[in-house]
Amino acid sequence: MSDAHAHAEHGEVQIDKSLHAHVCSAGTFLKVYVALLILTVLTVGVAQFHFGSANLLIAMAIASVKAGCVMAIFMHLRWDTAINNIAFLGSLLFLGLLFLFTMADFATRGSIDPTMSQHAEPPAQTD
C-alpha cells in the first residue's frame, strides 16, 4: 500500500481496495430478532410470578442475554477489532465498578459508623 502511495503522481486517483468490514448473513439477523422477541415474551411472562428478590435478578439476567445478542450480532462486536471491543466493553467494566462501590456503600451504612443514615433520602418536596 505505501509503495503504491509513494509512486502515485500528484492528483492521481487511487482506488483503495483495503476496506474490510464483516457482512453478516440475513438469516443470522432474523434468528437473533426472533430470539429477542421470544426473550421479551419470557420477560413479561416471568414477571407475572413472584419469586421475591429473585425477580430482579431474573429480569436483569434475561435483559443481559438480550443485550448480549444485540451487541454481538446486530452491532457486529463479535467480528469487530479488539480495540473496539476493549473501548466498548471497558465501559461495562467501569459501570460494574460504579455499581459495586455505590452498592457497597449503601449496603454497609450504619454498620461501621452508627451515626450515619441507614437510608438514602430523596430531596424534600418543595410544597
Binding site: M1, L19, N84, A87, F88, S91, F94, L98
Partner: peptide
C-alpha cells in the same frame, strides 16, 4: 488518513468511545 481502511477504523473507534460515554450516562 493513509487509506480508506484506516479512515474507517479510526472513525469507528471514535464512535465506540462515544457509545461508551452513553453507557456511563445511563449507567449513573
Amino acid at each position: 488518513f493513509h487509506d480508506a481502511n484506516q479512515e474507517f477504523h479510526s472513525v469507528k473507534l471514535g464512535f465506540w468511545l462515544f457509545l461508551a460515554t452513553e453507557v456511563m450516562l445511563f449507567g449513573g
